[in-house]
Design a protein around this nucleic acid. Structure first.
Lengths: 345, 345
DNA sequence: TTGAAAGCGCTAACAC
DNA sequence: GTGTTAGCGCTTTCAA
């Protein structure tokens, strides 16, 4: 258990197969340009010896790692309170493993960790990075770009300066919000409120913009900033009912917030959707379907976003197994959203 | 952007500092046994050049990676539906980064992936593995052990055969369940039901055992197997009310299940805790505190479990920075649970 | 204390 | 096609 059984080297495989190390290497890496009988011999030797290539040695010469870092800044506990990241991670993981890349997860717990992450990325452990830039003022993205690692961002980064070459994957937050609000308008609602997310995140800011696109001169009292949590949604809803007891619709910036709002509305005896129509955002199934009444919401395919992030990065890295079709620097992608009608609006 | 600025090597640092590569290496690795003036010169050179050691080269000779794999088998979507793994991951991540180890996340989506994971672990990318063995029949743990990678399990693995040298971290599920049920008994309840988790997981099985420890000859109709989800909790609760309408308490195997049960009880007009007392398990704050009424539950410190798993593994690996005190093969740890009283029981 | 030199295991030119 | 050889960048004896 303590003794490390010395793992066989390519050398050993070559010897056993009666070929040179180079040929053995060729076979291990696909076998192109090696004649059949030799291929078979080497394969057998690999099998018999239980040979597994030493990645460190390989990376040392190829300068590839077939590994990608996923960086998640987690200033708040909230990050894990909703399944958002989990779903993205899953999409990322699927795409990465489909192309034989490993996922290295870097969780940062505040500023102290940034240096560590920077060092890690600069240390050449990974070929690229997938970064979730949650907040406008987050220094992390800058650090990473500085480390010179190819990067794809999750969600549009909120930098005011137009840095070039930034690639990101995002949902059409603004368009989705517009569609939601238009739907409410179509329902004949006129006093439509909006509970926002944290406005230092572009997703929240974009949804607010979408709301404003439709409700051009909305009463400012109908807009309350919140934080994407159910508790925040409750608070916001109470505030709204106080400010404008006559409101007849609420567009919440995400489903969790909408769930909180729903709770308060029920508590206050407002019927949904008869008295107040409610729309959420995300279509997080466990929340949206289980809520009472089931939530009408703007669906975004979170797992697909993850998958896409990974795909863009791999393409940028020129992953051998992804080079079907267009190469070159990929550009950002904004995924469409769809309105899912349930009972709440 | 496309051109990879060739990163400086130790050689360059040594040249600039006017020392040999060996000395430069010593300084980079702590500087023991190098006289002060040289240390300073090398440090400066490192600074000026922005030198970062090439890990591949280092690993090639040291056979260490300072990286640990976290393997999560995810046969169901459920895994990410509750914050359980997220919390453990967080604990793990904290401990790992505190000791300069990287977290490599391996998500498996069914049997196809097992081979890949086995290969990866055998490939010597990581120094050890942290594995969550969800199900009794999961072949993964065996594969991993076979790969010869030092491993710590999250949750007691459910193998019937007593393999030796298995190290795991678990909560005292059985003891916690006992305490919960005893509490219900102390409240004067006599017709106590139990909604279990999936019984092919040891955590669920252990909680059931704890329930039985106290309710030695419970009516079998008072026990319903469920799946740790809110929807499952609802179904189970309905079933229970049908079987034994006179029940006066429910011990749910986790908080999500309890939340589902609570919903059904409210719907049926049963008052909690007056008519039916309810206890959950986990103390998942967003669920337990937000439920109506707030949930009495058995608390387990999930993040601490994660931290502990990492700590045990690092100790086993003889991590330089963890070697304070006891070395040697660490043994498994079972963390205590505590009953948290709120309004539901 | 410092330096010289020998690899760690592998890939990729370059010869044959 | 296949083999030979020169490193990739680093740590680590071993001498000095």
């Amino acid at each position: 258990m303590t003794d490390t059984a010395p793992r066989p080297t390519l050398e050993a495989v070559a010897a056993r197969a009666g070929v040179s190390r180079a040929t053995a290497s060729r076979v291990v890496n696909g076998g192109d340009g090696v004649r059949e009988p030799l291929v078979a011999r080497v394969r057998r030797a690999v099998e018999e010896l239980g040979y597994v290539p030493n990645q460190a040695a390989r990376s040392l010469v190829t300068r590839r790692h077939d590994a990608v870092a996923v960086v998640i800044a987690e200033p708040e506990t909230r990050v894990f309170a909703d399944p958002f990241f989990a779903l993205q991670l899953r999409g990322i993981s699927k795409e990465l493993t489909a192309h034989d890349n490993q996922l290295v997860l870097l969780l940062t717990e505040g500023r102290d960790d940034h240096a560590r992450v920077g060092r890690y990325l600069a240390g050449g452990h990974v070929d690229g990075a997938l970064v979730f830039s949650l907040h406008l003022d987050d220094p992390l993205p800058g650090l990473i770009q500085h480390a010179g690692v190819p990067t794809v961002f999750g969600g549009r980064p909120g930098w005011s300066d137009g840095r070039s070459g930034v690639v990101y994957v995002d949902s059409d937050n603004r368009g989705g919000a517009r569609e939601a609000v238009r739907h409410l308008v179509g329902l004949g609602r006129t006093r439509i409120a909006h509970i926002t997310g944290p406005l230092d995140q572009t997703s929240a800011a974009d949804r607010l913009d979408g709301f404003r696109d439709v409700m051009v001169d909305a009463d400012p009292r109908l807009i309350v900033e919140s934080d994407f949590t159910p508790a925040g949604g409750e608070r916001a809803m109470r505030e709204l009912l106080e400010r404008r007891p006559d409101l007849d619709a609420v567009f919440a910036a995400n489903d969790l917030t909408a769930a909180g709002a729903l709770r308060v509305l029920r508590e206050r005896g407002r019927r949904v959707p008869e008295d107040v129509a409610v729309i959420g955002f995300d279509d997080m199934l466990p929340v949206a379907e289980q809520s009472d009444p089931p939530l009408t919401t703007v669906r975004q395919d979170i797992e697909e976003m993850g998958r896409l992030m990974a795909r863009l990065l791999l393409r940028r890295l020129g992953s051998r197994s992804t080079d079907q079709g267009v190469a070159g620097a990929p550009s950002s992608v904004v995924l469409p959203t769809t309105l899912v009608r349930r009972a709440s609006a």
